[in-house]
Amino acid sequence: MRTTSTFKEHTAFIGTYAAALLGCGATCVRLEKNIGRIASAYGIEVEMTIMPRHIHLFMRDKSSGTSESAVIEPRKMPISFRCNTLLSRLSWEIADGQIEFSGAGAALQRAVSQPPRSKELVTFMVCCASASFCRLFGGDLAAMGVLMLSTCAGFMLRCHLLERKVDIRAVMFLCALVSSVLGATDMLFSIGSTPEIALGTSVLYLVPGIPFLNAFSDVINRHYICAFSRFMDAVVLTCCLSAGLCTGLLVMNAGMFR
């Protein structure tokens, strides 16, 4: 294996892989297993410290004893299970010797540069999900309709602002504000019989559920620092969306401010 590529190339590849996997929202345990698998296939021993904003990798060549240390920043990208799947698959292909080192680099690039899904389709799916969520909590048809509209406006604004690289906390606040103001119309115009449900569920599509669940998974695997960081990130985002909801209700004189 080492005849076609050098130790440095392998460590650079492992670093890029780790940055991509952490960036796409993988849990710490998956990161450890996948990187360990690749390193082992290339005859490298690896020790890693996974921190919230960087990964510290210490790699040692088993045959020559050469070592290298790298501090890598996670790749900035939205949570993507498709990327996570492709990267996990790649780690097995490397471990099972099904892919050459040059092919692995190309596969890594393909995994991280997957085109995003149609924005309109995703918006429509999220709107349907919000309306269904409202129904699960006992909302009527009017509340479901209002919620579809408020989610549509909020989600489109979210996509628009994120594309313009606006800070995620400000995005959360603004989207929650817009969604709650529109969600309050059910109460304001007495359209249906469950306006409280429409209000309560109007910002749920913004709840950072995956960071919360990742944090719990990291706790189980005793990655406490990373878990705490992910948890705090999720709490801050939840506070931002709560502030947006609160401002929206205050503006509309609805919900808890009525």
Binding site: S80, A129, S132, R135, L136, Y205
Partner: peptide
Amino acid sequence: FEDAFFSAIAAIGFAAISTPP
């Protein structure tokens, strides 16, 4: 069945945000 139906739609919609295969 109603509960199962709406939770299935909710799951598909929220899944779309995190781009699964």
